[in-house]
Simulated assay, not measured.
Amino acid sequence: MAVTTVTSLFERALGEEWTQLHPEIRERYGLVTDDGRTAIGRGRMTRLSRGAIALPVLWLGTTQNFLFPEGGDDVSFEIRSDAFIDARGYEALTLRRRFETDPVRRFDDTMRWNPERNCITDFFGTDGRIVADIHLSVEDGGLAIRLGDQWIRVGDRYVPFPKPLTADATLQDWYDEYAGRFRVAATVTNPFAGHIFGYQGTFDNDWQKADENRLTNRRLGSIRLPNPSDSSDSPGASR
């Protein structure tokens, strides 16, 4: 039976820690479908970085609007967050990032609550072929996100990433009271390849009426979620 809820995805994942977030972070990440609006962050990345060894993987990511090989300084970007209800009746989020590199690149993902694993599961890219559990915490009023178990999705099957191929990724999103802006920093590394991808920047948040036609990844809300039997050798497996 579908779950009737108006609890935002991030509030559900954080539980009691939710109230420790800065109010601006709570408003932005407390987005639910009933709001009928889209959160739009616009700003500049002071730095986009990528590792030379990982370039083939980054190029492959461009076919799915996932990772990309371009780097640079002072790059304009935009991130749009849309809430929707997934097939299990839980609030979910599609995030679409646009980086004004040459050529312009996108980085999309769709986050869903996974009650069987008691965490958020993230589907990366247009088709959600790369999948990972993500674990949240609050650090000094900001949101911290870390990758857990990771899979390649093949149809309805989840194939765990071999440990040498797993990524260790962290993202921090916080509100700078002095600057009156949001700040974000992300980094992706691998035990053997080292630094793979990263960015850091600042942005302002705005709101607009949600456009149903923009929810391109809503179809990922009906795909089977990984369950505890889909074991993984990733760094987050013991969490």
Rank of each mutant, 00 (worst) to 15 (best):
Y29V: 06
T166C: 14
R183D: 12
T101K: 01
F107W: 06
E24M: 11
R183N: 13
G236Q: 08
E16S: 14
E70G: 05
N227P: 06
T187P: 00
R12S: 00
D176A: 01
T19F: 04
A54D: 07
F161C: 11
Y29L: 07
G236F: 11
G89T: 09
H195C: 03
Y29T: 04
D140A: 14
A13V: 01
R42Q: 09
L9C: 06
D127G: 09
D206F: 12
R98H: 00
I25F: 03
G201H: 04
P115T: 05
A87Y: 01
R96Y: 04
E17T: 10
A179Y: 02
T189Y: 00
R96K: 12
S76G: 06
A2C: 10
G155Q: 07
T110H: 02
G155M: 09
M1I: 13
D127L: 10
L225W: 08
R50V: 14
G72T: 05
T101R: 03
R106A: 04
L171K: 11
L215A: 10
T7C: 07
Y199I: 09
Y90T: 03
F84N: 02
L55F: 05
E17S: 14
R219G: 02
R117M: 12
R146T: 15
G15I: 08
N118R: 15
E11Y: 00
R129V: 11
F68G: 10
R117K: 13
Y178C: 07
R183E: 15
P103M: 07
D204I: 09
I79K: 05
A52Q: 13
E27R: 13
I85W: 02
G43R: 08
F10V: 13
F182G: 07
C119N: 13
Q150P: 02
G125W: 03
G61P: 11
T7D: 05
V138N: 01
N205G: 08
F84Y: 12
I223K: 10
L21N: 04
P162H: 07
G155N: 04
Q20T: 10
L9D: 08
R117F: 02
R37C: 05
W18R: 01
E70Q: 15
D34T: 12
I120K: 09
E17C: 02
P235C: 08
T110W: 00
D149N: 15
I120R: 09
P191S: 09
L215V: 06
S8Y: 01
T4S: 13
G36W: 06
T38Y: 01
S222P: 10
S49I: 12
A54L: 11
S232F: 05
L147Y: 10
A193M: 14
Y199C: 08
G194H: 11
S137H: 04
N118I: 03
N205A: 14
R44S: 10
G194K: 08
P162W: 05
R239A: 08
G194I: 05
R80K: 07
I40V: 14
F161I: 15
L225N: 06
R214W: 10
R44N: 09
P160T: 14
L31V: 06
A210F: 00
V75Q: 07
P191D: 02
G43F: 06
E16M: 11
V75A: 05
T38Q: 08
T187N: 08
R12G: 02
T170C: 04
R214V: 01
T7F: 00
G142P: 12
